[in-house]
Amino acid sequence: MKKYEVHQTIRENKIIAVIRGDSEEDAYLMAKLAIEGGIKIIEMDSYNSAIFTYH
């Protein structure tokens, strides 16, 4: 996604969920629930960077 597309998406949606989880399971569940609730933009953050490893 290009920078201008990101800006446009933020302007259109107006809400960014910021999710901080201590475990992969918590972060996944919170993101899933946000998406089910209609949130289209999610920022993921963690005190434990190991939860964001690719499987």
Rank of each mutant, 00 (worst) to 15 (best):
M1A: 12
M1S: 14
M1K: 08
K2R: 08
K2D: 09
K3Y: 05
K3G: 02
Y4W: 03
Y4K: 06
Y4N: 09
Y4V: 01
Y4D: 08
Y4R: 05
Y4M: 05
V6H: 01
V6M: 08
V6L: 15
H7P: 00
Q8Y: 01
Q8K: 13
Q8M: 04
Q8T: 10
T9K: 14
T9R: 12
T9S: 12
T9G: 04
I10H: 12
R11K: 15
R11F: 07
R11D: 14
E12W: 00
E12M: 00
E12P: 00
N13H: 13
N13P: 04
K14M: 10
K14R: 14
I16H: 11
I16S: 09
A17R: 11
A17H: 05
A17W: 04
V18S: 10
R20T: 15
G21T: 10
G21K: 06
D22V: 02
D22E: 15
D22S: 11
S23V: 02
S23E: 06
S23D: 07
S23R: 01
S23Q: 01
E24A: 05
E24L: 02
E25A: 10
D26W: 03
D26R: 02
A27H: 07
Y28Q: 10
Y28H: 07
L29C: 06
L29N: 14
L29R: 13
M30N: 10
A31G: 15
A31M: 14
K32R: 15
L33I: 13
L33M: 15
L33K: 15
L33Q: 15
A34C: 15
I35R: 15
I35S: 12
I35T: 13
I35Y: 10
I35E: 14
I35A: 14
E36F: 05
E36M: 12
E36L: 14
E36I: 04
E36G: 10
E36H: 10
E36P: 11
G37N: 13
G37H: 10
G37E: 12
G37Y: 09
G37I: 09
G37A: 11
G38W: 00
G38A: 02
G38Q: 01
G38L: 03
I39T: 13
I39D: 05
I39C: 11
I39F: 02
K40F: 00
K40G: 00
K40A: 00
I41Y: 01
I41D: 06
I41N: 10
I41C: 03
I42G: 08
I42W: 01
E43F: 05
E43L: 02
M44L: 15
M44K: 04
D45C: 10
D45Y: 01
D45L: 07
D45S: 14
D45G: 06
D45K: 06
S46K: 08
S46D: 09
S46N: 11
S46R: 06
S46M: 09
Y47C: 03
Y47S: 14
Y47L: 15
Y47H: 11
N48F: 01
S49G: 07
S49N: 13
S49Y: 06
S49V: 11
A50R: 01
A50W: 02
A50K: 03
A50H: 06
I51K: 00
I51H: 00
F52P: 10
F52K: 06
F52N: 11
T53K: 11
T53M: 05
T53Y: 03
T53D: 09
Y54Q: 12
H55I: 08
H55K: 14
